[in-house]
Write a protein that binds this DNA or RNA. Structure first.
Lengths: 188, 188, 188, 188
DNA sequence: TATGAATGAGGCTTCATTCAT
DNA sequence: CATGAATGAAGCCTCATTCAT
């Protein structure tokens, strides 16, 4: 294995080891110091692998997305109806699985960074992420514009669920998907 | 005028004087020091009127909403069609007016706080805000669930417009509203 | 009543109204602001009657001592034996009465000021206070040096009771007094 | 030398370097800033070694006690009579040596903290300190209760010497010790 | 006489970042 | 490579004191 690969693997490991910390404490309340302790490495070492805190969340998002992709493709085979397929696609927001709940929290932290400290890199990554999801949705419902709308709407529901007193995210998403599929059918 | 009223007016004035600063620099990058200088008062004076930084954004949101309400009710009279009325309701996201653009930015800052440092007070305020908008929408389209969906979706579009490389917020919202109104009509 | 008397009365009233606050929160943790609120007057008014925080505790001590003197002279009549008389003299440290407990706390605060911010005025007051007690003791046991020793020792016990994990102040004082009286008798 | 030892040594050195500052200016009037400058280190570095200001006085007391113990054991060998031994034990309050005078001042500061900001840690430390002294006294005079009384009384004298206009601490302590030893003899 | 709004100095503490080992 | 001690800038907040009303 070459040096670059080695470095990349370590980078990923460091990021992953901080996953729960980010999910629990939130991006803003975590210091480089805490991250180093959690990762079991020296503070200086963090800077060997990352530019800054955002960079770690960034790597974390990438890791989680990779894992997520694998899972999604597996799940997709089981799903039969379009509805089921779409649910599987948005499993991040629907699952009660503890790991996914952590990933959901990480995504929230990622969105906070997108909103508050929008570096080109992170904006580009978010754009690609959205494109990927929309493309997957398009594969299911064969309509780009509708796919984009669905994606953005579900993010809107996610924001709502994080900034309101009570919000049944699952119900909102499922009701919405059902309606969208109905419209889609009718429009054909 | 009694003392409480005086204090309230000064509170509002301080908050408003920091409006542009918040819009330009963002909640996280602003210090009490900067706020005091911008407001032309002493650092200590800030604490005579506000509990903390969040409290200032909070007051600012309230001020802007009050101004916004007045404006909306004026605009509403001019609007004839349902479509126009809804556009006027979401003028915050559609207008090119410089003041409104600043208000839009403040709302973004508010959402960032909602997502990252969710105090009960702020979550409650956001909940009430959404309820108000949904209620206004309901007055127009006579459908609570659809109103809620429209609101959350538009917030989703707003988030998208703030976290993606290119995003035509106006187009997305208008297309969406048109579709929704069409569905609504058909469903009757 | 002349102006000076009026001022003195108000001074005493303000000080007394802050008695419980000082006893509960301690000299160091109380701000002029809190004192003004507790006394039900304006912050500026404090400065009309007192030079600073120490000055208030000073006035408070004076008030309490005046009350204390009256009480002591009453109590003294009831006491028969020398032992009883001395106990009555040090009632501040022996009584379980709620008011006296508060006075004891005030005296502690006073000692803290004596130790940490010794102004001439406060040192002089403390010196006079000790002289008075020693004189009263001397009236009882007819021995100046022993009286001084007893006084200082009991202050030592009081300090101990405030800076150690467990300390039975009452027992220490009473045992000590008994021993001293025994020595005294024997020495005659 | 392991890292913990290194850190401990530095901790002690920082504390000791602030010794004179504490003795001269007093705990309450010293800021972390001043301490950092005096110790010749950065403000942030203070927090690498201490939790807070109190923690520094705490370490200082420990250092001084350690030094003091060594000295006492040496002095004890020279002392012949019980009286001399006890004087050596309370050398802190009797010596005219400049270093000891500083230590006496530090102990005063320590007592002020005990009285005014009594954390469990500091109260426990003071309790242990007293226990140690009483135990040493007991070794000399073979009487626990009397030892405790002597200790508390001498603290009382010390307080008196710090809060009264004129007070001959040495005379008070020596007279007292002589009397106590006399009583003790007689009681046998 | 009484007030309390206004203030800015100064307190404590955190933290990203550097750099010598 | 890896480290973590050292730092000082910068943040938040408190408060005694002043002064115009």
């Amino acid at each position: 294995m070459d040096n670059l690969s080695k470095k990349n693997i370590k980078r990923k490991n460091i990021a992953k080891s901080c996953c729960t910390l980010f999910a629990n404490d939130g991006f803003l309340d975590i210091s480089i110091s805490k991250l180093a302790i959690t990762a079991g490495i020296g503070k200086g070492t963090i800077y060997e692998y990352f530019e800054n805190k955002e960079d770690i969340v960034f790597e974390l998002m990438t890791c989680l997305q990779e894992d997520y992709d694998d899972k999604f493709h597996l799940n997709l085979k089981i799903a039969v109806t379009k509805e089921e397929k779409i649910y599987k696609l948005f499993d991040l927001f629907l699952s009660k699985d503890e790991n996914i709940l952590i990933q959901k929290e990480i995504y929230k932290q990622f969105l906070i960074i997108c909103m508050s400290k929008p570096s080109d890199k992170i904006i580009k990554y978010n754009t690609n992420l959205r494109d990927k999801y929309i493309s997957l949705l398009e594969n299911i419902i064969n309509n780009y514009k509708q796919s984009a709308k669905i994606y953005d709407t579900i993010i809107g529901f996610f924001i709502a669920s994080n900034s309101l007193e009570k919000y049944d995210l699952e119900l909102c998403i499922k009701t919405f998907i059902k309606t969208e599929l109905k419209i889609y059918k009718e429009n054909i």
